[in-house]
Design a binder for these strands. Structure first.
Lengths: 129, 129
DNA sequence: ATTGATGCAAACCTTTTGCAACAGC
DNA sequence: GCTGTTGCAAAAGGTTTGCATCAAT
């Protein structure tokens, strides 16, 4: 019994919110944002929709140190994140400072398949730029 | 009223467990390990002790993507972590692939103060080595 | 009409807190 | 003896689940 997913206003709005956000969003940010359009949206629907979107790989988990879990679209390509220690916002950082990983990298006996980098510091607006 | 911390068997055992672990430990791993010595140890004591150890900077948070929060001693120097996608263990990876950060790095307007790298892949024992 | 999706509330699980008993100093 | 600490249980937070109703197909 393969699941037969239906198109609903809630799912459309949730995915739209994630796609059009400045950076990775928390569950509560998603809830508040979508409730502007659909006030009766319940938190359970957000969680369930996130699960579906994750399963179909439309979005991915962004789990940064010392932060709640966030979600972003999966079409951004390889990039990393910057976490501002002042305003606590999270920004996407295009590009990568590490050499490309092709799935055969061995380091001290460890096979490296992937990596995540989180930068911490002060964002431009918190620096007054 | 500066807090006057006392030395107790529980705190000693909890710190000992973290210091002598293979890698960063979860709250439950700490609880189970210390309960071998102090069976009546409560989970609340583990959480409270972790808070104290964090405040006095004896330990630090290790919060990796797609994993529960872990803790490790704070005397390991700059290093990163390897998360095995097969056995799900976390290992310390000495050394760093990124240039040294001295607190004045500017990147696209962002002031970089610190960074964390998590590598994902297969550990030596899961690779059959 | 069928069956997946939603909203609500209850259930769950992890973390925190209140409190009386305990124990370091 | 004073006061910080512990274990227990209750509370608080965040996430999941059950279920009757709603709605996409």
């Amino acid at each position: 019994m393969a699941e037969n997913l239906r198109k609903t206003a809630q799912r459309d709005a949730i995915l739209y919110a994630i796609q059009h956000a400045e950076g990775p969003m928390t569950v509560n940010q998603i809830l508040k944002e979508v409730q502007k359009k659909i006030p009766k949206l319940g938190i359970a629907t957000v969680y369930r929709t996130i699960k579906h979107l994750l399963k179909q790989k439309s979005i991915k988990v962004v789990s940064l140190p010392n932060d709640v879990v966030r979600y972003e679209t999966n079409d951004l390509g390889h990039h990393h994140h910057f976490s501002c220690v002042k305003c606590e916002k999270v920004f996407d950082m295009p590009g990568c400072m590490l050499p490309k990983i092709n799935g055969t990298e061995i380091y001290n006996g460890y096979l490296i398949l992937n990596h995540e980098i989180t930068l911490f510091g002060e964002c431009p607006s918190c620096r007054g730029i």
